[in-house]
Design a protein around this nucleic acid. Structure first.
Lengths: 212, 212
DNA sequence: CGACAAATTGAGTGTTTTCAACGATCGTGG
DNA sequence: CCACGATCGTTGAAAACACTCAATTTGTCG
């Protein structure tokens, strides 16, 4: 149980402010010390999302989501100030709420994109295609027939790859029988294979680990 | 001059919704079509930040900043709906404003981080150190003597590198005479060299381009 | 002091990038 | 309507880069 004065809380090294998945209705202002926020991925890998020092605000989840999506832990003895958020209730159905929701969505998209940056080329492309397919499906379009509105160059820039590398990834997925490619029209042939490529993908020992 | 009905605007392929640096007080909802947002870096490189389709909201800058930080262009014939934002004025000095500001800051931080992901190892570390130094300076601490609160492992995860690679980058910058390293205490010896490493860095022809 | 974890360095491997070339596609103007 | 030029997409080969594995050193904490 940490020392606490009012909304203020003293934290020691290694102590958690909150864990991913916990319900929340607050954000926190860092008064002193240093914290880090991170998520644990399926493979058990820890992904650091950011470091937070004096003056920073942590835990945006509290604004719109009912549970946190990341974990925050103190790197040093730190002091945080709890700030209850009432934003979503008060502004529900207003343009403000719409915009704040969009901002929150953008933050989550960027976290996801950041995660993708850690992955291999094929993993990035496969993830992008699956995500795009899912988005299209939500809008009533086919989940299998994708029309990419952007050029290879744009997509490569977005995914952080050289155009040639992206092109090779397309070829690879096509040869694997996961997709069919006709210019900017992509057809998902084998969703299973594509999902595998988006997942662990890794050719080295990932298969052995899964088998063991 | 684009066709326009009320706040609705029809855009054709290649037409810009707005450019980076333009004043703004609105966000836009995409009704149909597809757009991309991007920034141009010092080196002239175009960095795609995202693609926007039906239902997406573009241009968060309008909420808090007075000018845009990215450029948005139509990839296809598209239809956008302008949504004037009055958030900052009405909520100035409230907790809501504080939180929204923080969210906006987080988005910009992530855009920056995304840019860093495209850079080489040394570039990433040098940028991080300079940024950290600048942050410390703002808080009244020394701009040259940095104390990193996180472990190499955490920093490596944050920067998207293997721990060993990060370590080698420290060694490299140290041998270049840019910094001195004592465990987690970093001293910036030659800010110029460090800035160069964070900037173009590239050994190939970047220097020639600058000379030409 | 001793065990454990973190940091550093070396060697080898794999992936991505770069450079270069070619075919296909698109828009444009003759 | 077709030819032209430019851009885009694709593939190959070599080089650069970061990663993994492994060993050593250093630092920390009991």
């Amino acid at each position: 149980m940490p020392a606490s004065v009012g909304h203020q809380r003293i934290m020691h090294r290694g102590e958690h402010l909150f864990h991913a998945g916990e319900p929340t209705d607050s954000v926190y202002v860092v008064r002193s010390g240093a914290l880090k926020s991170y998520t644990i991925h399926e493979d058990g890998e820890e992904q650091v999302l950011g470091f937070h020092m004096t003056g920073d605000i942590v835990g945006f989840d509290g604004i719109l989501a009912s549970t946190t999506t990341c974990t925050v832990v103190a790197l040093d003895t730190s002091c945080v100030y709890r700030l209850p958020t009432r934003l979503p209730r008060a502004d529900a159905d207003t343009a403000t709420h719409t915009v704040v929701s969009a901002m929150y969505g953008e933050i989550r998209r960027l976290y996801h994109l950041l995660h993708l940056e850690r992955a291999s080329t094929r993993e990035r492309l496969a993830s992008f295609l699956l995500e795009h397919a899912s988005k299209q499906a939500q809008r009533g379009y086919s989940e299998r027939e994708l029309v990419l509105p952007m050029s290879r160059r744009d997509l490569a820039s977005y995914l952080g790859l050289a155009t040639e590398t992206l092109c090779r990834a397309f070829t690879h997925l096509r040869r694997q029988g996961a997709i069919e490619v006709d210019r900017n029209r992509i057809r998902i042939v084998d969703r299973e294979t594509l999902a595998t490529a988006a997942g662990v993908d890794a050719p080295p020992d990932a298969r052995e680990r899964a088998t063991a």
